[in-house]
Simulated assay, not measured.
Amino acid sequence: MDRVWLLSALLLAVASGAAQRLGIIATDIGVPAVPGGLTGPDNTALPPGCFCIPINQVCPFQTNVRIALRPVAERCPEMKECCRTNGSTQPPITAPLGSCGRQNALRRSNIIHGAALFGELPWMAMVLDRRGRNLVARLGELDFSTPQDSPLYPHRDVLVDNIIVHPQFNPQTLANDVALLHLSVPVNTAAAPNIGTACLPSQGQFFQGLRCVVSGWGGDPTIPGNRFQNTLRVVQVPMVDSFACQQRLGAARLGSNFTLDQTSFVCAGGVEGNDACTGDGGSPLVCQNDSNKSWTVVGLVAWGLGCAQREVPGVYVNVASYANFIRQNVRF
């Protein structure tokens, strides 16, 4: 049972001329219901046990499944039709539910960038502001333009009843930019494939050379307006040595006297077109363990100089520096 979710503290200032990457702290989304479920987008009845899902999602059954892409004129235009047959009632689990850092979707051999799959990033959470009332953590969300991503495993909204901000958080420099959100009720991470946790690092752990990805609903710099995206996106980014990061950020804009706070921050990215961006603040940077293939949260999107520019890494909260702080305030 997990009740605490780790997020970057809400950023109130901009440090060293760098753009803060504020995350989704949104009012109620309030989108209308969309076609789908047990009827097709044109309200045509589907066969028993069938429903329409977005093309990028995984059908939540394990065996004896008929999944068909339909022409526009048929039952699931521009979507995927997923049908259950006798005995196919379980999600496509690839690891034990409830264990940290496990993906519960069909694994992709190489994530470069694109829309996330259902159950691929179960540790991802969206934070909603109920119009002046308490914050709500939305767990298991993928595409917030739809009422639910799966008829069997909908997202779950859980009230946040306490926020623990790091006592040395500095809104001017963004040092120690981390907070814990305490959920009002326990969440059973073994109950659904789309809700889970990433593993926590050891205090001071390093992650150079590992495969790492960052995910979020933030803006795409290639789209006019750089607006939030409906579907969760994921992109692979390389870890960057802290001294190399300091040098690249200095050369890009911050000057030769810029010093990176290596306790508070780590860096990743610097590959043109692949990066976190506006609206991704607080989103997790996770790296995969080579031995057991589990994913550990390494960073939280903090700030950057623009988005997705060559040789300009993004800056993330160094979660390994706060592992003891987290464990002291959470029961594991």
Results as ranks from 00 to 15, higher is better:
residue 4 V to G: 03
residue 7 L to T: 13
residue 9 A to I: 08
residue 11 L to V: 09
residue 21 R to C: 01
residue 25 I to K: 08
residue 42 D to Y: 11
residue 44 T to Q: 11
residue 50 C to E: 09
residue 54 P to A: 05
residue 55 I to T: 01
residue 64 N to L: 05
residue 66 R to N: 13
residue 70 R to H: 09
residue 78 E to T: 10
residue 78 E to V: 04
residue 83 C to G: 06
residue 87 G to E: 03
residue 91 P to H: 05
residue 92 P to T: 02
residue 98 G to L: 00
residue 100 C to T: 08
residue 102 R to T: 15
residue 109 S to Q: 15
residue 112 I to F: 11
residue 120 E to K: 09
residue 122 P to M: 05
residue 124 M to A: 15
residue 129 D to C: 00
residue 130 R to D: 15
residue 135 L to C: 01
residue 140 G to Y: 05
residue 146 T to F: 05
residue 151 P to C: 03
residue 153 Y to P: 10
residue 156 R to Q: 12
residue 160 V to T: 04
residue 160 V to F: 10
residue 165 V to C: 10
residue 168 Q to K: 11
residue 170 N to L: 04
residue 170 N to W: 04
residue 173 T to S: 15
residue 177 D to A: 14
residue 178 V to C: 09
residue 179 A to K: 02
residue 189 T to H: 09
residue 192 A to P: 13
residue 197 T to C: 05
residue 198 A to W: 09
residue 207 F to W: 08
residue 212 C to L: 13
residue 216 G to T: 14
residue 216 G to M: 15
residue 218 G to R: 10
residue 219 G to C: 04
residue 223 I to R: 15
residue 226 N to H: 06
residue 227 R to D: 11
residue 228 F to H: 12
residue 235 V to S: 08
residue 236 Q to M: 12
residue 237 V to F: 14
residue 244 A to E: 13
residue 244 A to Y: 13
residue 249 L to E: 11
residue 251 A to P: 00
residue 253 R to W: 02
residue 268 A to T: 02
residue 268 A to V: 14
residue 277 C to L: 07
residue 278 T to L: 15
residue 282 G to M: 11
residue 282 G to C: 10
residue 283 S to P: 05
residue 286 V to C: 10
residue 288 Q to S: 04
residue 289 N to T: 00
residue 292 N to V: 10
residue 294 S to C: 07
residue 296 T to K: 09
residue 302 A to I: 13
residue 304 G to L: 12
residue 313 P to S: 09
residue 314 G to N: 04
residue 319 V to R: 06
residue 325 F to Y: 12
residue 326 I to G: 03
residue 332 F to Q: 01
